[in-house]
Design a protein around this nucleic acid. Structure first.
Lengths: 230, 230
DNA sequence: TTAAGCAGGTGAACACTGTTCACCGATAAT
DNA sequence: ATTATCGGTGAACAGTGTTCACCTGCTTAA
C-alpha cells in the first residue's frame, strides 16, 4: 500500500508550494514585507495551515537559505566555470570568487539572506544544517593550495586566511550594491573585479598576514542574537 | 519676549529625549525590535506624541544616521588620529580607514544603520541631508592625492577608486562581524588590518583598474526601495 | 460495515506592531 | 475675559506572527 507514500508526497508538495511562494514573494517584496498571511493567500491555504509545515516564519527562511547554499555550492556548476574552462589554479580561484559575487547579482535576496541580513535570529544553533558551506570552503582551500604548489602564490600564505581576505572584499562590494549605496555611474561588477585582482596582487606580494588560520566554516549563516537584529 | 525661544527649547529637549531613548534602545534591542510604544514608554509620553516630533519611525532612524555620520566624520577626531600622529600620507590613509573600521566596532548599531541595513527605505531622496558624507570623502581623496604626490602610490591611480576599494574590504569585514559569520577563533580586527594592508599593497603594485572614477558620494546612506528591504 | 482515531485545515483570537484622529486641557494672544 | 492655538492623549484602524479549540474527511481496527 502506497498510502503513506502518497501522504508524504502530499506533504512535500505543500511544503514546496510554501517555499516557492515564499521565495517569489521574498524576491519581489523583501523578507520582512512578506507576511505569513500573504504566503497563505498565495497558496490558497489558511495562515494557520503553514504552521503545520514550518514551525515559524524564520524556519521558512532557513529552508530557503539552505536552498541558497545548495545553489551556490552546486559542484557541477563550480566544475563548469572553474575547473574545465580555466587553466591555471589562480584563474580557478578568480572564477570561484567571481562566481560567488555573480551569485550576489543573480540571487540578491538569497545572497542577502545567506551573508548579510541581520534580521533573522538564532541560526548559530542551526549549525549542522548548513554543512555543505564547509564543503564549499574546502574546495576553495584546495584551489589556494594548488596555487601555492604551482608557485602562483607565496608558500607562506595561509589558505584559509587567503580565502577570507578574498571573500570580504567581494562581500563588501555586494553589500554596497545590495544596500544601494553605490553612485549612479558606478559599476559594482567592475569594482568587484578590481577588488578581487587587487587582493590577489596583495596576496602575491608575500606580505605577512596577522590573521590566524582556522578550520571553521567561512560562510556559516545567521547567528546574530535576536536582541541585535535590525 | 522669550516665549517662542522657550517653546523651541522645549521642543528640542523632547526631540533629544526621543532620539536618546531610541538610540539606547536600538543599541540594546536592535532597530526593528524597538517599537514606537517602547520609545514612548521610555520618555513617559504617549506613542502618538512622538508623531508630533518625527513623522515616522523611519525619520527617527534618519536623524540617528545623521548623528552617526557627524560622529564618524568629526573633523577634530580625524585630525587627531590622522594628521597629527601619522607622518607619511599612506599612514594617514591607513589611520583614516582603520578609524572607519573602528567605528564599526565601537558603534555597531550606528554603523549597521549607516552602511549595511536594508531594512529602512527611501533615503535616496533624503540625499542633501547627508552632505557631510561627501566632505569625509573629499578628505580621503585629498589624502590619496597626497600619497600619489609623495610617490607612495602610483600616479596612474584614481583616488576615488582607491578609497572605494579600500572601503569595501573593511566593509566586508565589518559585515562579517556584525552578522556574526566569523568563526569563534577568528579575529575581525586582525582580518581588517590584513585586508587593509593587502589592498594597499595591491594599489601600490600599480595594477590597472577597471572602475571609472566618480564625483559621487561614496557613503550615501540608505536608498534601497522598500520593496527590497529585509 | 461500522466505530474509532487521527492528521490536516480552519476561524477566531491573542498580543503585538506603525500610524491616525477626534478630543481635551493648558497656555498664549487678543 | 474670551478666543485661538498647540501639545498630548486615548482609542481606534489595519496590519503582523503565532496559537488553539474545533471540525472534517480519510485511514485503520474491530
Amino acid at each position: 500500500m502506497g498510502i503513506k507514500e502518497r501522504h508524504e508526497r502530499d506533504r512535500e508538495a505543500v511544503s514546496r508550494a510554501i517555499l516557492d511562494a515564499a521565495r517569489e514573494l521574498f524576491v519581489t517584496e523583501g523578507f520582512h514585507n512578506v507576511s505569513i498571511r500573504k504566503i497563505a493567500e498565495r497558496i490558497e491555504y489558511s495562515p494557520a495551515a503553514i504552521y503545520g509545515y514550518f514551525p515559524s516564519k524564520d524556519d521558512i527562511f532557513y529552508a530557503l537559505a539552505e536552498e541558497g547554499f545548495r545553489l551556490l555550492g552546486d559542484p557541477a556548476a563550480i566544475r563548469e566555470d572553474g575547473r574545465v574552462k580555466n587553466a591555471t589554479p589562480v584563474e580557478r580561484i578568480r572564477a570561484a570568487f567571481l562566481r560567488m559575487y555573480q551569485f550576489s547579482r543573480e540571487q540578491p535576496q538569497y545572497f542577502a539572506l545567506m551573508f548579510v541580513d541581520r534580521s533573522v535570529p538564532r541560526i548559530s544553533k542551526e549549525y549542522e544544517r548548513f554543512s555543505f558551506a564547509r564543503e564549499i570552503k574546502q574546495t576553495l582551500v584546495d584551489d589556494v593550495r594548488a596555487c601555492i604548489a604551482a608557485g602562483e602564490l607565496p608558500a607562506t600564505l595561509n589558505p584559509v586566511v587567503a580565502i577570507r581576505t578574498l571573500m570580504v572584499g567581494l562581500l563588501g562590494v555586494a553589500v554596497l550594491h545590495l544596500s544601494d549605496r553605490l553612485g549612479p555611474d558606478e559599476n559594482p561588477d567592475l569594482l568587484a573585479a578590481d577588488v578581487l585582482d587587487l587582493t590577489l596582487a596583495g596576496l602575491r606580494s608575500g606580505m605577512p598576514l596577522r590573521s590566524p588560520g582556522t578550520d571553521d566554516c567561512p560562510m556559516e549563516p545567521q547567528s546574530i542574537a535576536d536582541t541585535h537584529a535590525s
